[in-house]
Design a protein around this nucleic acid. Structure first.
Length: 477
RNA sequence: GGCGGGUUGGCGGAGAGGUUACGCAGCGGAUUGCAAAUCCGUGAAGAUCGGUUCGAUUCCGAUACCCGCCUCCA
């Protein structure tokens, strides 16, 4: 069996992965707060852990892996949106409106992440469905002396957990010294964090021993992970920005609430995304969502390819140049494989070197290099690329209809087919007359419209290129 | 201010203490009416300074620059 090696943030080292139970390998990844469309940065952990999920399923068997990714649906921004809708006259209670908003956002999230070729996790728990477990966990933490109630707030006492700060490599005193945080007056220690906070009349709330209120963010993941994966599980993933304080706090709560468990044994953090060399932010004007890219006509698999070009522990830069490179490579793979039938998954086993690359701390870049090496074996390329989430049926179909091969009589984009026919006719005439000027003129115009033109003994071929501009093609009619 | 990560050829981006990364772009050739695609070949690197070593781009230290977290942003 292949040994998977992973860099564990907990030890800061690359370690052999040994699951607690090979018959049930368990992974938890922090999911999105569902207040709006997922931005491009949200896609990184989704793609990274999707690759890990696929690898784990290959090594341990699809039925022996449990992958959980939550939805955080308790959030001030969601509340604000629901309140806005209610004030605008929307029917229903505030809780109904919140549910409506989160349902909508979750559907968007699914659509966008599906487009990126990410398999759905086995469980996608919503925080609001686990309030009972959170309340129970908080009550336990109070009973064990790790938390205190003060003015309707329940706070976790970080000083009660000796290893606090170990994951992120910080000491409590360092953090206080460097902190620029305003300390809430009810806090016993500046680093203490909220487990439960009171809700005002305009905010959603649940009954609890400490009054009507809602859970703090950190306790949500701890409670859901415990409910679905138990006291100890194998892998906990998320973005590097969550390492502190979110993951640190999760560890503290879970370790104190379930002292006999290990919580998560391997912590994996993906580095952050940048856009054209800069942090993506609304103020810089370079903020965009996954949906924005899809609507620009960039296929989800191209986005996926760009993400996998960079190792997950390195900062990743989204640039148009990379997008183009990915587009060219994938178009080439489609061209090589479009006429082949994928091998049924039951009869297919991924390429050994591909697996070795991924087993080495998810070296996705090397995996892509390996796929390129399979270009001389199109069937293997097709099957392995699909295994890694590329060349899905939807994209193959798009390619099939966007590709015009006159000699084969295929191509279902009417405009392109017509152009191909025209070019083919002109070319045939030119071969007789030896005057190629009309052919060259049309060819140049097609190229200007972003169409790749190929003329060979087997005939004329037109392929939609990465810069394909339908408007320019239209103008040629 | 505190903590952490990074700096590789024109561009992107890996691995390995001493042997070609790879892709894109470039250049030369085959092929082509001309191209494209394909095939063959090819030049080009390791932020700076110092240390360890027979030998470092790869290990250690310092400097510079970049990035992230410390503010319920993945």
């Amino acid at each position: 069996m292949v040994t998977i090696r992973l860099t564990n943030s907990k030890t800061r080292r690359k370690e052999d992965f040994r699951p607690i139970d090979p018959l049930n390998v368990r992974m938890y990844v922090c999911g999105p707060t569902v207040y709006d469309r997922a931005h491009l940065g949200n896609a990184r952990p989704v793609i990274v852990f999707d690759v890990l999920n696929r690898l784990l399923r290959h090594v341990y068997g699809a039925d022996h892996v449990t992958y959980v990714r939550n939805f955080t649906d308790v959030d001030d921004k969601i509340n604000a949106e629901a309140l806005r809708r209610q004030k605008a006259g929307a029917p229903g209670t505030l809780e109904d409106l919140i549910h409506e908003r989160t349902e909508e956002t979750i559907a968007w999230y699914h659509a966008d992440m599906d487009a990126l070729g990410a398999l759905r996790p086995d469980f996608e728990p919503r925080a609001t469905d686990y309030i009972g477990q959170m309340v129970a966990m908080i009550a336990g933490l109070i009973a064990s002396g790790n938390a205190d109630e003060a003015r309707g707030h329940v706070l976790f006492r970080v000083r009660s957990y000796k290893d606090y700060g170990k994951l992120s490599g910080r000491s409590i005193d360092d953090m206080i010294a460097g902190a620029r945080v305003e300390v809430a007056p009810f806090k016993e220690d500046p680093m203490d964090f909220v487990l439960w906070k009171p809700s005002s009349g305009e905010e959603p709330g649940w009954d609890s021993p400490w009054g009507k209120g809602r859970p703090g963010w950190h306790i949500e993941c701890s409670a859901m992970a415990h409910e679905l994966l138990g006291d100890s599980f194998d892998i906990h993933g998320g973005g590097l920005d969550l390492q502190f304080p979110h993951h640190e706090n999760e560890i503290a709560q879970s370790a104190c609430a379930h002292p006999h468990g290990d919580f998560a044994r391997y912590w994996l953090h993906n580095e952050m995304l940048q856009v054209e060399g800069k942090k993506m932010s609304k103020s810089l004007g370079n903020f965009f969502t996954v949906r924005d890219l899809l609507e620009q006509g960039i296929p989800g698999e191209v986005i996926r390819f760009v993400f996998l070009m960079t190792h997950y522990r390195s900062p990743m830069d989204w640039t148009d140049a990379k997008r183009k490179e990915a587009d060219i490579t994938l178009a080439n793979w489609h061209r090589l494989t479009w006429e082949l039938v994928p091998t049924p998954s039951m009869q297919f086993s991924p390429d050994t070197k591909l697996i070795e690359a991924l087993a080495d701390d998810l070296n996705t870049h090397m995996a892509l290099v390996r796929l390129r090496a399979l270009q001389n074996d199109p069937q293997a390329l097709l099957d392995n690329a699909r295994w890694l989430g590329f060349l899905p049926d939807t994209e193959r179909e798009k390619f099939r209809i966007a590709w015009v091969k006159i000699s084969a009589g295929s191509g279902e984009t009417p405009e392109l087919a017509e152009m191909g026919q025209r070019l083919d006719n002109l070319w045939k005439q030119s071969k007789v007359s030896k005057d190629f000027s009309a052919v060259d003129t049309l060819k140049a115009a097609l190229i200007a419209a972003g169409v790749q033109v190929r003329m060979s003994k087997s005939g004329v071929e037109l392929v939609r290129g990465p810069d394909f501009d339908p408007a320019k093609l239209e103008a040629l009619q």
